[in-house]
Every structure is written in C-alpha cells, then in structure tokens.
C-alpha cells in the first residue's frame, strides 16, 4: 500500500516515502512535522513482508553533516567525557572519497548498512547482534557482553563501543558502557511512522522506504535508476544503497 505526503512542493519528490502513510506539514523550509496516519500496528511483531532500506543520492549538493547532527541529536550521542576522539561513538559519518588518478572526489554518509546477511549477526556469540524481521540490524544491549567481535567483522566500520559510563541518555536510545552500538535506522521513529533522523535532515537526498514493496518510492527509484552497494563483492546485500558512487 502506498500513500503520499501532502505537501505543496511536489518537485521534492524524494520526501515521499513508502508504506508508511503519513501526513507532513511544512512549518519552515527544511523542517517537517509528521503526523502518523496509520503507522504499523505496534501490538504486532515487525513483519518480514517489509524490508526497510535507504537510497542515498550522493550527487545531490547536500551538507551531509546535517545528517550527522540530526543523528547525534536524535540518539543523544556525544555525551562522552573521557573518551579519546577515536573512542567516541559515531553512528553515521561523512566519508570523503577521492580517486587519486583522476582527482575526482565526492563525499557520502556511511552508517550501518543493514545487510540482509549481516556478518555482525553471524559472529555474535550471544545473539545480541540481531536483525529484526523488517531488516533493521540492532544490538540487543540486554545481551551484549562487549566482546567486540561484531566490530571486527563489520566491513563498514559501522559500530562503536561505549568506552565509559554514560548519563543522560535519550529515552528512545538506551546506551551504556561496555556495549557495542550502531545506527538502528531510528527504529523507534520508524515504528511510529516517522522518518529516520538523517533522512529527515537530508533535504530529500536520502529516500527511505520498503524495499519489498515494488510500489514504494524507494523501489521505483531503484528500478528506474539503480542503486549501488558499498562492497557489493561481499554479497551481504545491504539495505542502504547509493546513487552516484
């Protein structure tokens, strides 16, 4: 089932997203308020009929740092006090890629790629690293023992380890010392029919939706323009795909 967000500026079609029926209201340029019309029935388990994914258009002239900021704000990141910069958590980062021979360069946001065959899930000894039925890869911090094997296995360096005691976490993103964490595709927002924070901040350059629904905007875009996966050679089939890389 597909529905569209009502909004004046129809040319910004990338804001339209898949099977979540939501009504959006533009209150200021770039700021959208979403009101859930009929989000998933939260009394039922997430279903494998849905596979959430993202399509990131790297050719768009977007300040990807806004996505990082939105992520930090949404998940209450950045509250480490003692950790060195290389120990601090980053769910999403901006990677600058440059071709040495041609001089061509671009930047793109990289986060957990929510693989269909996630190596982090395979290697986790306790099953803390898990893939929800709808394709979102999560860390169950109730089970995580902090062995960091998933960090060794992830080809995207998507995971961080919490190196110190944290306070003042966000209610929707519990996180603490000794556990591994990563982008959770803003699962709490998605469940409530909202867009992930980075998608909302991307000015339409990231399209979010149901990859299993051929009528969803992300599927249509992928069908028309195609999408590329980082390290596609590993055949992990990430749910996060790119255009222009």
């Amino acid at each position: 089932m597909t529905s569209k967000i009502e909004k004046e500026d129809l040319s910004r079609r990338n804001f339209i997203f898949g099977s979540i029926a939501a009504a959006g209201l533009t209150v200021a340029p770039g700021v959208m308020l979403y009101q859930t019309a009929n989000a998933r029935d939260l009394s039922k388990a997430a279903s494998s009929k849905v596979r959430w994914g993202m399509l990131i258009d790297t050719s768009r002239d977007v300040d990807w740092n806004k996505c990082v900021e939105a992520c930090v704000k949404e998940h209450g990141l950045g509250n480490e006090e003692h950790s060195r910069p290389d120990q601090r958590t980053q769910y999403i980062r901006v990677v600058e890629v440059k071709n040495k021979s041609t001089g061509y360069s671009m930047s793109l946001p990289v986060m957990c790629q929510h693989c269909e065959q996630p190596p982090c899930v395979d290697v986790c000894p306790t099953g803390a690293s898990m893939k929800r039925e709808d394709g979102i890869v999560l860390v169950d911090r109730h089970r995580c023992i902090g062995c960091r094997y998933c960090m060794m296995a992830c080809p995207y360096k998507a995971r961080s380890f919490v190196h110190e005691t944290l306070t003042d976490q966000s209610t929707t993103t519990p996180r603490g010392k000794g556990c591994v964490e990563s982008c959770n595709m803003c699962v709490n927002r998605v469940d409530n029919g909202q867009l992930p924070a980075c998608v909302e901040a991307s000015e339409g350059a990231i399209v979010f939706g149901n990859l299993n629904d051929p009528e969803s905007d992300i599927s249509k875009l992928l069908a028309k323009h195609g999408g590329k996966q980082i390290r596609a050679d590993l055949k992990l089939n990430p749910g996060v795909q790119y255009q222009g890389i």
Binding site: D122, P125, T126, G127, C179
Partner: peptide, 25 residues
C-alpha cells in the same frame, strides 16, 4: 577484557551457533 564481564552468565546461556565464538566456548 569483555565490556560486560558481569554478563558471563549470558555468554553461557544464550548461544548463537553460527558464531565461531560460540563454537570456541
């Protein structure tokens, strides 16, 4: 060296048999 050594009991009761760590346990 585990992040949560206090959760040894989790490592000993919850197994993911795809994990080489589990095999090693």
């Amino acid at each position: 060296d585990l992040g949560r050594p206090d959760r040894l009991i989790v490592a000993m009761t919850k197994f993911n048999f795809l994990s080489i760590f589990t095999w090693n346990i």
